[in-house]
């Protein structure tokens, strides 16, 4: 679960990127974040993964209070989320397999499980047969999908994607969104920043509009891609949403508990 309370972010140079934001995102939601360039969308995501810290307010992500989190706990916060970066962030010296496997090795997964899972996830994103290639030998869209595979491989509670379709043709964009929607239907929270109006209309879900550091719109758009819809707090939407389901969260809940234990060990 993600909980923000009166959160502001002022960058050292004085830019006020987020202004007094309060929002809750429940487990299992599918959320689009839209808004003009410079509105504060990436800043919002950076706060969630603790790449930036909020200047004021309170942030709780998957049980971690980010205002109080200790440095050595940050890796464990990040392991509860899979992040798809706009610039891919692939390690250029590692082949595709190792780039994806890295996320699993980080948490100490035995090699034979790594192998099985990585091959399966690479197949899921349509990169079967590219395992031995280096990132530099792939197209932008393919690299994007490697980044997605790496985000999925640990079966995280939350997937966060900053413009995951920014570099690819509409067809591929659709495929990637389809994968994200499927994963959401298995219970994973998905948060996607995008500029692409068509995709938002097609896939729907909860739509947050950020403008000049403020959330100016929070609505729900039901589409065929979402079997499950989840209750939304603070939603000022007029559009229908069902608040019946919170299913599919159990596996990821267990996972989180395990990691918390490991963190304390």
């Amino acid at each position: 679960m993600i909980h923000l309370e009166n959160v502001s972010k002022v960058y050292p140079n004085g830019t006020e990127a987020l202004k007094n934001i309060s929002i809750d995102i429940q487990d299992g939601e599918f959320v689009f974040i839209v808004g003009t360039s410079g509105a504060g969308k990436s800043t919002f995501l950076k706060l969630l993964m603790h790449e930036e810290t909020a200047t004021f307010g309170k942030i709780v992500v998957n049980g971690h209070n980010l205002m109080k989190i200790k440095k050595r706990r940050v890796p464990y916060l990040r392991r509860t989320m899979g992040i798809v970066f706009q610039d891919f962030r692939l390690i250029k010296n590692m082949n595709i397999f190792d780039n994806v496997a890295f996320a699993m090795r980080v948490i100490g997964t035995p090699e034979k499980d790594v192998k099985k899972t990585v091959y399966r996830v690479l197949e899921l994103v349509g990169l079967k047969g590219k395992e031995k290639h280096r990132p530099g030998e792939l197209s932008g869209g393919e690299q994007q999908r490697v980044s997605l595979a790496r985000a999925l491989v640990n079966n995280p509670k939350v997937i966060i994607a900053d413009e995951p379709t920014g570099n690819i043709d509409p067809e591929r964009s659709f495929e990637i969104m389809k994968i994200l929607a499927d994963i959401n239907n298995q219970g994973t929270t998905v948060i996607v920043v995008t500029h692409e109006h068509d995709l938002v209309q097609e896939f729907g879900g909860r739509i947050l509009r950020i403008d000049d550091g403020e959330i100016v719109e929070d609505k729900y758009l039901k589409t065929k891609y979402h079997k499950n819809t989840v209750s939304i707090n603070n939603a000022n939407s007029e559009i229908n949403f069902e608040d019946d389901l919170s299913n599919g969260n159990e596996p990821s809940d267990n996972k989180n508990t395990i990691e918390e234990k490991e963190a304390d060990a």
């Binding site: 993964m49 916060l77 990040r78 962030r89 250029k92 890295f102 980080v106 790496r150």
Partner: peptide
């Protein structure tokens, strides 16, 4: 490379 490793959840030791 270091930055990427950390953003994927690697501990400093790792």
């Amino acid at each position: 490379e270091i930055s990427i490793m950390k953003s994927v959840g690697a501990t400093n030791t790792f």
